[in-house]
């Protein structure tokens, strides 16, 4: 406890230094353990998925949690990034060194997703609430349906033969970069403008904030990282199918955001880890997996937001505190 307090009192740069050391230590630990073979290939795969999900969840949290706009089309941006990145690297394969191609593919995937973010965002972001949710859902489905019919990237039968460049090194550090940039954005002047739109759009517009600009900024930021995550996913699986990116995928990411807490990046990371590992633990009862997941969703929502249940839990908590204190 004392260590935590000391850490909180530190100045900015020493704090960042300690954070960096910790992040590096986790990375080195996992790398060493997988090289000696203590962490099996199966668990390495799970860790890669965790990194990809962290990128997706943290970026969606920018639009849903911090900007306060409910979007249901995150998987669409992921698909755009995945297909454009994979298309590039498949065609460049062999001409340049592999890491360079992969870096290019990630940048291109992110930028193309960003461009789609602008195309989708500019006309739609003036809608609010449920309407925005519906229109983003529709965009996601349109993207999926177009990919299903685009024969140049394999159509319905899938896009195969993508070089499998993704490894833990790339996924981990890209996840770290996403988290760091997201925190930097939120704590900046721009970030405060974004949060003010969530709190009260009319009031922030009245105080001179260009709400349109900041809405697009947050939306495009999230789209970029969704594209990056898609690109990582594409080069991890080696094959892409349009049906991976249907509406259920967007929901899956949204659920992680909501369970982690809207507007809470730490929570997003934790829920991305838990909700990636949990289904893997349930493999032994695979028939019941979806049922348990659905029940967990409903029960968690009820326990988090039902006023009577919340009161009950608080009472129990207080009683425990009394016993301890």
């Amino acid at each position: 406890m004392k260590v935590m307090e000391k850490y909180k009192e530190m100045a900015f740069w020493p704090k960042m230094f300690i954070n960096f050391i910790l992040i590096l230590a986790i990375f080195l630990l996992i790398t060493v353990l997988s090289n000696v073979g203590i962490i099996s290939n199966y668990y390495q795969g799970i860790m890669l998925s965790i990194c990809i999900n962290v990128i997706l969840v943290v970026s969606l949290n920018i639009t849903t949690g911090f900007l306060g706009q409910l979007t249901l089309g995150h998987a669409g941006f992921m698909a755009v990034g995945a297909y454009s990145g994979a298309f590039l690297s498949k065609n460049l394969m062999g001409t340049l060194p592999d890491p360079l191609i992969f870096l290019l593919a990630i940048i291109v995937g992110g930028v193309v997703a960003m461009a789609f973010g602008v195309i989708v965002g500019v006309p739609t972001l003036r809608l609010k609430g449920d309407y925005l949710a519906i229109i983003t859902l529709a965009f996601g489905e349109v993207i999926k349906n177009i990919l299903l019919n685009l024969n140049i990237v394999g159509g319905a039968s899938g896009y195969i033969g993508i070089p499998r460049y993704t490894n833990f090194l790339w996924a981990y550090w890209l996840a770290v970069i996403t988290v760091v940039l997201s925190i930097a954005l939120i704590n900046s002047r721009h970030g405060r403008a974004i949060v003010s739109i969530r709190e009260d759009e009319i009031a922030s517009e009245a105080s001179g904030i260009d709400t349109k600009k900041f809405k697009i900024l947050a939306f495009v930021f999230a789209a970029f990282f969704a594209g990056v995550a898609g690109c990582l996913y594409a080069h991890y699986m080696g094959i892409l199918e349009p049906k991976t990116f249907k509406f259920d995928k967007s929901i899956e990411i949204l659920v992680m955001v909501v369970l982690g807490g809207m507007g809470n990046i730490k929570g997003s990371i934790i829920s991305a880890i838990v909700l990636t590992v949990l289904p893997q633990l349930l493999v032994s009862v695979s028939g019941y997996r979806m049922l348990l997941y659905a029940l967990a969703l409903i029960i968690m929502m009820l326990f988090k937001y039902d006023p009577t249940l919340v009161k009950l839990i608080n009472n129990i908590k207080n009683r425990f505190k009394k016993v301890r204190g």
Partner: peptide, 23 residues
Amino acid sequence: PLRSASRISLLITAIGVSYLLQS
């Protein structure tokens, strides 16, 4: 129970019910 809660939590609960019926 969620009538007073935010719209998004209600939406996710509805999705949960949908998954529950299907599975």
